[in-house]
């Protein structure tokens, strides 16, 4: 099973070597509702942990997606441009946003594992 970590803002990080695949969780997409646009950064951009990595827009509002780890954007999910609803249909898989080459894998230690995130979401009622 892939190693997946979570933030309190409902971003996930799926590890592929030293590259972090970042998206929003299924809980987050269910709260947002129908996704109609995703504003992705340029490949090569440096992002700091907690900084804006992307913007996801539902019919109702725009929400920021924060970088769970620091590093360089090495890929963005261009398929979301024509099919933003992929975020609703498969948030944890095909609906990923960006891939970040991590500057400091130690930052992962501050993120929640699956059990901790499940408990966190359950606590939100």
């Amino acid at each position: 099973m892939a190693d997946v970590r979570y933030t309190k803002d409902h971003e996930y990080v799926r590890l592929e070597g030293d590259v972090a695949v970042v998206g929003i969780t299924d809980y987050a997409q269910s709260q947002l509702g129908d996704v109609v646009f995703v504003d992705l950064p340029a490949v090569g951009k440096k992002v700091a942990k907690g900084g804006e990595a992307a913007v996801v827009e539902s019919v109702k509002a725009a929400s920021e997606v924060y970088a769970p780890v620091s590093g360089e954007i090495v890929a963005v999910n261009d398929a979301l441009s024509d099919a933003p609803a992929t975020v609703n249909e498969d948030a944890a898989g095909a609906g990923w946003f960006v891939k970040i080459r991590m500057a400091d894998k130690g930052e992962l230690g501050a993120l929640m594992d699956q059990a901790a995130y499940d408990a966190y979401v359950a606590g939100l009622g």
């Binding site: 509702g33 129908d34 109609v36 539902s58 019919v59 109702k60």
Partner: peptide
């Protein structure tokens, strides 16, 4: 009610 389970897109 802001939306029902079908979602804003389908309701619209």
């Amino acid at each position: 009610p802001i939306q029902y389970p079908t979602g804003i897109l389908q309701e619209h």
